[in-house]
Design a protein around this nucleic acid. Structure first.
Length: 715
DNA sequence: GAGCACTGC
């Protein structure tokens, strides 16, 4: 263990280069102690220590502002049970949170951060950035990083305690970690687990940790078949959060080894207003409400409007700006700012600029502002009550992305955004009855996604019978079986369901199993195109590299700017050309990206992923001294696409006489997505990486394939 | 001829 920790320490981190003198660190610590004592959780210090002295599991609920993420690890550090092996892991859903919490806790403890000093007691570990020291006691890390650590040591032997934060978010990774910890506690006595959630209702978590293992691992048969019917009907609402693996009936609550604790949050009051009658037109209703608030309420006080996506945000922005022209000079000025993930970084930064005097920011946002981005200065929230939700359909192997009603907890989260700095107001553009009829919680991601990666994650960490894995919310059996079949087809599992050597290699890669399989295929002597495959796969595993353009004129400009990069064979080879050209650019890469209307931010991530994949392939002995082939080599290009065929053999469609495409697997009609270079073109058959239903079924990331390649692949 | 919310290894 110590060895691997030392090796990791050599990796880069972004700590401040100069070391802070110890006396300054202590001064800062003493100064911060006063504000720590003001936190609601400070009073509960003894309760929390006692709870974990007497129990192995603590479920801690507390809203934002309680201070639980920073204080709980510090409360536990000097406890006798925490002396050996001595480390505390605290998981976080997002990289920025892991890093900033580590920085804050290091300051509060008066210790240097991470790798800046061998004496540092607090560190962090996120992808591409690890900052720990030999003395690290508290480590903040993303959920994915903890799962990666479990590949090296499934028993997590360096930790005395694992704290899982933000459990209410219910990502697949959180559910996997909870299941692993639940299993681990039966064979590693003394491992303490703290589960922290913003939701006060912790009944299902309690039952989960209290139940005897074999009994609750069985999925509920009745509910499973209900869900599979729903799966057939594309349009039905599958957002049924009332479905839980842990209903009161299957509770085996002994309660003996589980402590629970609730901590008050620290929020200003927020007044909620509902509509008297429901509305169909949320854009119109938002427009109306925004101007009402703006004309009636004093400044300062910014306004945050929750919408579904880029398109609705941009049309509402246009409407507001038109209407704002009619406002007299008596009213404050209005600054309308959109906020969504695809927005370039510079535009996103605008929301952090201070609002000028006598003006009001009106921020139109997706649910990025619900959890990931905290917008300062907000006193008013307008909530349309809707969000786009992704749902995987097993039968069709298709992701749908449709507008759905949000859950109550999501609505409450949005409302809370108005009360972070002062008392606020929240206007819900739906009736109070509608609110009461919403699902209580968000549907856990594990019920909404392709499970192949989760299943391979389990297999690689020693879970033999994945159908018996303790899920907080067991997915339908069909979904698990579909994932097992897909892994078998990829050769990641053998016919007995055991993980194969190929499967182990794929599981180490930070990729979906299908993309991982492409890498493995490309490394074979027959295919011999690993360098190219890494570049292409790296591009496919980050956000879209081509900047979105919304005018006809812009599109023509983009066509010209990108002309040398576009490949008639399709998106895969186009991405490869773009990565190769970017990587070969000797001087100003930012300039190159601008010239080609490519996102520099996306290309930087591509280069990070490329570096990581290259290192991992070298470690796995997949990559020896292989060099890139000349760019124009057509035989290589053909082999690259064939490698993708190995990973995505189910994602193939043939052209029909009417010019549409139909999938081989399910005879589904599929259209080439407008973002593809093949949009509007025809080939005898296409291969695609993603199959997404929005307003119709689209293939994304598409290349032309020949029918005889498919026959070869089937041999 | 139409465009995907958000995380993460």
């Amino acid at each position: 263990m110590e060895n691997s920790a030392n090796v990791k320490r050599k990796r880069v981190s972004e700590d401040s280069p100069g070391r802070t003198p110890p006396s300054q660190l202590q001064q800062k610590r003493i100064k911060l102690l006063d504000s720590r004592k003001q936190l609601p959780i400070w009073q509960r210090q003894k309760d929390i220590r006692d709870a974990l002295r007497d129990h192995d599991v603590l479920i801690l609920s507390g809203e934002t502002g309680s201070g639980k993420s920073t204080q709980v690890p510090q409360f536990l550090l000097d406890q006798p049970w925490c002396r050996f092996p001595g480390k505390i892991a605290v998981t976080q859903p997002r990289r920025v949170a892991a890093i900033s919490l580590a920085r804050r806790v290091a300051e509060e403890m008066g210790t240097p951060l991470g790798s800046s000093s061998p004496a540092s007691k607090v560190g962090y570990s996120v992808r591409f950035d690890e900052s720990t020291s030999p003395s690290t006691r508290i480590k903040f890390l993303t959920e994915g990083m903890l799962l990666q650590e479990m590949l090296r040591d499934a028993s997590l032997r360096q930790y005395s305690c694992v704290v899982v934060d933000e459990v209410h978010e219910r990502s697949v990774n959180i559910d996997l970690i909870l299941g692993f910890l639940r299993q681990l506690q039966t064979r590693r006595k003394g491992l303490k687990v703290v589960v922290m959630s913003a939701t006060a209702d912790v009944g299902s978590l309690r039952r989960f940790f209290a139940a005897r293992l074999p009994e609750y691992a069985q999925p509920d048969q009745k509910t499973t078949s209900d869900r599979s019917q729903e799966d057939d009907a594309l349009e039905t609402d599958a957002n049924d959060a009332s479905w839980h693996g842990f209903s009161d009936e299957d509770s085996h609550d002994s309660g003996s080894d589980i402590a629970t604790c609730h901590v008050e949050g620290r929020q200003y009051p927020v007044v909620t207003q509902y509509l008297d009658t429901p509305t169909e037109d949320t854009i119109e209703a938002s427009l109306h409400r925004i101007f009402q608030i703006h004309c009636k309420e004093p400044t300062p006080g910014d306004l945050l409007v929750f919408m579904t996506g880029q398109e609705t945000i941009q049309s509402l922005q246009k409407l507001i700006e038109e209407y704002a022209l009619g406002l007299t000079a008596d009213y404050p000025r209005m600054l309308v700012l959109p906020l969504f993930a695809a927005l370039p970084q510079a535009a996103q930064q605008q929301i952090f600029q201070p609002t000028p005097r006598n003006s009001r920011k009106v921020i139109l946002t997706t649910n990025i502002a619900e959890t990931s981005v905290t917008v300062p200065g907000v006193r008013f929230v307008v909530d349309t009550g809707k969000a786009k939700v992704k749902q995987f359909r097993n039968r069709l192997g298709l992701d749908s992305l449709l507008v759905k009603q949000i859950s109550q907890s999501s609505a409450d989260q949005r409302k809370g955004r108005a009360g972070r700095e002062a008392a606020g107001q929240c206007y819900r553009l739906y009736t109070e009855e509608a609110y009461k009829s919403l699902d209580k919680d968000n549907t856990p991601e594990v019920l909404r996604c392709d499970l192949s990666q989760a299943v391979l994650t389990m297999k690689a960490r020693g879970v033999g019978d994945v159908l018996a894995f303790p899920f907080l919310t067991p997915p339908p059996k069909e979904a698990m079986e579909k994932a097992l079949l897909q892994l078998l087809e990829l050769g990641a599992l053998d016919e007995h369901g055991k993980i194969s050597p190929i499967g182990r290699k794929i599981a180490r890669l930070p990729l979906t199993p299908a993309l991982g399989r492409v890498i493995i295929e490309a490394a074979t002597p027959e295919m011999d195109c690993l360098v190219e495959a890494i570049d292409t796969v790296a591009c496919l595993s980050v956000e879209h590299i081509f900047l979105a353009i919304d005018t006809e004129e812009g599109r023509e400009k983009a066509q010209v700017a990108r002309r040398q990069l576009l490949r008639r064979q399709g998106d895969h080879l186009t991405y490869l050309a773009a990565v190769q050209a970017y990587a070969a650019e000797p001087s100003d890469r930012r300039r190159w990206a601008e010239d080609h209307m490519i996102s520099h931010r996306a290309m930087q991530s591509v280069m990070d992923v490329r570096k990581q994949l290259t290192a991992q392939c070298r470690q796995a002995k997949l990559l020896q001294k292989q060099e890139a082939h000349p760019a124009a080599d057509e035989a290589t290009q053909e082999r690259i696409v064939k490698c993708f065929l190995r990973g995505f053999s189910a994602n193939v469609a043939r052209v029909c006489p009417d010019g549409s495409y139909k999938t081989f697997a399910g005879n589904q009609t599929v259209a080439i997505h407008p973002s593809s270079v093949l949009f509007g073109r025809k080939g005898e058959a296409i291969l695609y990486n993603q199959f997404v239903y929005t307003n119709k079924a689209y293939a994304r990331d598409v290349s032309v394939v020949q029918l005889r390649w498919l026959e070869e692949a089937l041999q």
